[in-house]
Design a binder for these strands. Structure first.
Lengths: 105, 105
DNA sequence: TTATTACGCAACCACACGGTTGCACATCAA
DNA sequence: TTGATGTGCAACCGTGTGGTTGCGTAATAA
């Protein structure tokens, strides 16, 4: 169950840098590669690469307007990943199943 | 918040093979490296290495009895990871609500 | 127009890491 | 004891990938 998309999400979230990007974008609402790179010790191209991976995994949505491309968080895949964790956890600990209510919302 | 332990969990779950191991152990209840490797196209040492990573992240608990070491899932860290995802998702939702208010005006 | 800004793409590089082989030690059965 | 089984540790290897530099192009500003 839910292995296809969920796998991509975990792969994408497997990198600390990418997790920071998701966190930052979620906090800002949206952002461009240039904006994000401005406050990081890496180049814009590096950030753009990671944003591409996140977008490929479905975690971000890219919208180009004029000469800039803005990225925003797509909560759907996150919910799938949460479901996976709850599922695995539920097999071992029924207490975790209660989180399903909170997460499913 | 939620950066220390959660980061280890995502790093550990970032590998497809390790996710399979967690899934399998959760289904069995517990298992040893030898048992798991018996049904995989990799060596016991490879499995043992991954189990060590998972245990280091707090996802597994190792219990040695006699000459065998059995691993079982520890649900705590999974809960933290779920919390992180819900948190990020919530931040997005909040932002979205704010945009909705602005647009309605 | 010219200059500037923001992207995207393509090589290239270095290092982390998953996997392997080999070996030594501990435990249980004979 | 001897033999089989289960681990753990160390060294080595190949590759995936995050990061960089460099360049070409589209969109705004002057």
């Amino acid at each position: 169950m839910g292995s296809g998309r969920v796998d991509d999400v975990f792969d994408a979230l497997g990198d600390p840098g990418r997790r920071s990007l998701v966190r930052e974008i979620a906090a800002r609402g949206d952002a461009t590669a240039t904006e994000l790179a401005a406050e990081l010790p890496v180049t814009r191209q590096a950030v753009a690469k990671q944003l591409a991976v996140l977008a490929e995994a479905g975690l971000l949505r890219a919208t180009r307007s004029g000469r800039e491309t803005r990225y925003a968080v797509t909560p759907g895949p996150l919910r799938d990943a949460v479901a996976w964790m709850v599922e695995v956890g539920a097999a071992w600990d029924e207490r975790l199943a209660r989180l399903r209510d909170t997460a499913a919302r």
